[in-house]
Design a protein around this nucleic acid. Structure first.
Lengths: 132, 132
DNA sequence: GCTTAATGATACCATATTAGTATCTTTTGT
DNA sequence: ACAAAAGATACTAATATGGTATCATTAAGC
């Protein structure tokens, strides 16, 4: 049960760092601070700026800064970006052969648990993470 | 965020079916009822009997039955069998370069959410699933 | 304007996990 | 003896994730 993936993890740390520094931060700087492989970090940053979480500046003295207030970035957004729909995996078995005749208790229970987790994740934002 | 995997799903359905029938059930019967590929189902059943969830009987008129009361089988046990430790993914970054100086808020928050999910999963057992 | 240091875009490779298959042996009721 | 079941084990395929490489584009600063 892995809630967040490496991608997401790196992305969140990068965002936290940028939020704390509150200036334009370059990829090389993040690579150095976070110890993440350079091309991988770059890929993540590109994705984040494409998704409008970060704002990028090209050219010399370029880099990235936040495009939103820290409290407006919840970790669930980042999960969405790197892990796709955080949702509710569909039933593996076709409905009509499901032993529970369509009313799949298992699925229902799992869904509740997943929704609880999602609700909790929704409440964690970057401001929370950097304040401690 | 996939709480349970296909393996686990199939295993749970097989167990539910066996629990409901309350008799010795053969692999071919489960294959037919659940529509799962035969060799795959067999593999799962073998695993379950090796783990003492099911009790197996060889030879003609053989098959599987439960080795425990339905309410004594929680879905978290099955997850453990097919998905390994349901635990808490460690921090990807080495502690000393973690931007939060060792007190990793993100990790702490995630851990709480995971534990909540685990607690909820622990309460779902086969008896609950077959009763509805 | 040229150089340099940055990001953008894209295509590719590596690894791990999960899903699924094949085959042969052993057991047991009839 | 035979048939029908499970046991054991080794293999293959698909998918997701993690990571690399390369070239183009942009813009600051001399």
């Amino acid at each position: 049960m892995k809630l967040i993936t490496r991608n997401t993890d790196y992305a969140l740390r990068a965002i936290c760092y940028i939020a704390k520094e509150n200036k334009i931060v370059t990829a090389p700087e993040l690579v150095k601070v976070l110890g993440v492989p350079r091309p991988f970090m770059r890929k993540i940053l590109q994705r984040l700026s494409k998704e409008k979480i970060l704002e990028s500046h090209k050219g010399q003295a370029g880099g990235f800064k936040l495009n939103l207030l820290p409290k407006k970035i919840s970790i669930i957004q980042i999960m969405h970006i790197f892990q796709g729909q955080t949702g509710l995996d569909g039933c593996f078995l076709k409905k009509d052969i499901c032993p529970n005749r369509g009313k799949c208790i298992l699925r229902k229970k799992i869904r509740v648990i997943e929704n609880n987790a999602l609700t909790q994740l929704r409440q964690i934002n970057i401001a929370v993470l950097i304040k401690g």
